[in-house]
Design a protein around this nucleic acid. Structure first.
Lengths: 147, 147
DNA sequence: GCTTTACCTAAACATAACTTTAGGTTTTAG
DNA sequence: CTAAAACCTAAAGTTATGTTTAGGTAAAGC
């Protein structure tokens, strides 16, 4: 059983990202590599999951900085185990559900409000932005990107 | 009955954005103004709805460029009427619903996959991106960019 | 062995979406 | 009337997320 190390190009192809993006993620501390005798990057297979998670999270509107802090709970240089990933998964499931609820709320506001053509805007949820997404308070939740 | 024109600072306060952002939106062609005798911006009340819509759309992950093209159907210098806003509302409602469906799908993939800790990644939807959302192959791109 | 492909680093460039700065003008409040 | 607050423009700066370029080194195929 070999260690099955991957070159940067192999990871790039398998994950659908550019090599330059992997360099970038590494500079940001989101992924890690060892080096070959000739100083080329070598990745363990777990990097693929990391990159997949990065891309998935970005779809949710999570910044790399936030992803980095979520990854802080993972072991840096060895493959995270089931428990590690599961913890991440659960918190993201919650965050994602929260985001979905927000979007539904917004969608309903759009229907009820933009289309209404109301001239008095004082009760309009779009007009009073804070109402639109409601719970703006500083939640610890990762996806609370309501700035 | 006056035209009830608003200064840039008034709009900024009522919409919760910076004055510089309004200048910026105007340069981008998202909002319009007339000028006072002394060359200061004066806005009609409809600008508030425009700005509110901009902010709402940004919450959905819509870029300013996309917002601009959506706004292309609105009359430039006079207040859009009910029909105009309603058309916008409907198309965005659809887009939002689509986005919500994607997020739900992704959420479910995360639960089923990230948490599983599977070592053989060959059946993993995160690992094999094409399976995640089906439609649209084009290489190993993780998720449809909802461009 | 040689050549092509892949890789290395550092630094510059790109784009979006704004903000800040600098220097000057207009409006408003007392 | 005057002084503070608000406004003007143009240009440079900022942050995030990368990509591109330039000048070399390593690895792989024939």
């Amino acid at each position: 059983m070999e260690k099955q190390e991957l070159s940067v190009g192999q990871v790039a192809r398998r994950c659908g990202v550019a090599v330059s993006a992997l360099h970038f993620y590494e500079r940001k501390g989101l992924i890690f590599s060892s080096r070959s005798a000739g100083n080329q990057r070598r990745y363990g297979k777990d990097v693929i999951r990391r990159v997949s998670v990065i891309k998935a999270a970005q779809q949710l509107g999570v910044s790399l900085a936030e992803i980095e802090s979520a990854f802080a709970s993972l072991p840096r240089h060895k493959a995270p185990n089931r428990t590690h990933w599961q913890a991440l998964s659960e918190s993201w499931h919650q965050a994602l559900s929260a985001r979905i609820r927000k979007l539904e709320k917004l969608r309903d506001s759009l229907t009820g409000c933009i289309g209404c053509g109301c001239l008095s805007m004082d009760n309009c949820p779009l007009y009073n932005p804070d109402d639109v997404l409601g719970e703006q308070h500083t939640g610890p939740v990762m996806l609370e990107r309501d700035d």
